[in-house]
């Protein structure tokens, strides 16, 4: 705060301008990406009021013609048109990727918090938690998904209330797999944060008459979950990318869709390049959102020390 009144040097002003230009560019790209996704999804849900379901939001032919008219861009006009043609399929796949990641992350969190608490404060339950975590982290995620889908054939046991929510029930198997696996990783991040909370905090809680569980709930967790955000964001980011493994148990998410198109058209480079950009956009969004969340729940007076 004290530095705010100091006049800026020319170099600082230039750096500031550059930073804000970068930020504007990032925000614009994000708005374009999410705007396209949301409009595509809504158009599909409402049965195609804007463009017929399955059609891109803008006509590929028009894009090709427009780009073709500009000498420098003419070379990529055909590729651009091809990508535009893909967009409805990509939007559909992204929807599943976002839903699978989001639901698995939230369900995994609900399991991870008790796992982490048990690990730190439990006796017998600490061993159970450790066993669970090591088993799930120590075996390949793809193998876990195969066991759930091919081995246990869980797709045919999806309960009635959940069955039919998605076009295919196998989506629930993927969510279950990512939930169970992600919970183990999330528990590790949260455990580290729980351990970092000073022991005196729980002692003080007990000293005013809170039980151990109440002290953990009212005193330890509100601090630990804040401290866990930066490292927990790793799991969020990983899960977005790992969710592509759902494609291997036939869930038509983003990777699966792109792979299908690539197999049909043989245009692997273009398609996987676009696919990479899509995942990058999702990951950047996740990490930016979590940065915001971290800042908004920071404890006054503590945040600055923690960053150092």
């Amino acid at each position: 705060m004290a530095g705010a009144t100091r006049p800026q040097t020319v170099a600082e002003r230039a750096a500031d301008a550059e930073a804000s230009a970068g930020r504007i560019l990032l925000v614009a790209a994000g708005a374009l990406f999410w705007g396209w996704l949301v409009v595509s999804w809504v158009n599909r849900w409402l049965g195609g009021p804007l463009v017929p379901v399955g059609d891109p939001l803008v006509s590929p032919a028009a894009v090709e013609a427009a780009l073709g008219a500009v000498p420098v861009l003419a070379a990529v006009a055909a590729d651009a048109a091809f990508v535009i043609e893909l967009t409805p399929v990509l939007a559909q796949g992204t929807w599943l990727t976002v839903v699978i990641t989001g639901v698995s992350l939230v369900c995994g969190f609900v399991i991870a918090v008790p796992l982490a608490v048990a690990r730190v404060y439990g006796r017998f339950s600490a061993w159970l938690s450790l066993g669970y975590t090591e088993l799930l982290r120590g075996t390949p995620l793809l193998a876990q998904l195969f066991v759930l889908y091919y081995g246990l054939n869980l797709a045919s046991y999806v309960p009635g209330a959940l069955s039919g929510v998605f076009a295919r029930d196998v989506v629930w198997v993927a969510i279950l797999g990512f939930t169970l696996n992600g919970a183990a990783y999330q528990a590790e991040y949260i455990r580290g944060a729980v351990e970092s909370v000073d022991e005196g905090q729980i002692t003080a809680g007990r000293a005013i008459g809170l039980s151990k569980v109440e002290s953990i709930y009212h005193v330890v967790l509100p601090q630990a979950l804040r401290y866990a955000i930066p490292s927990w964001t790793n799991e969020f980011v990983y899960l977005i990318k790992y969710s592509s493994l759902a494609g291997f148990i036939t869930v038509p998410e983003l990777y699966y869709r792109a792979d299908q198109v690539a197999t049909d058209t043989f245009r692997y480079t273009a398609i996987f390049l676009v696919l990479g950009v899509m995942y990058l956009a999702l990951v950047l969004t996740a990490s930016k959102v979590m940065e915001r969340v971290d800042a908004s729940v920071a404890i006054p007076g503590l945040g600055a020390d923690r960053d150092r």
């Binding site: 005196g200 905090q201 002692t203 003080a204 005193v219 601090q223």
Partner: peptide, 8 residues
């Protein structure tokens, strides 16, 4: 407490 132990 010596170290205050206020809920941070």
């Amino acid at each position: 407490f010596q170290s205050f132990n206020l809920f941070a």
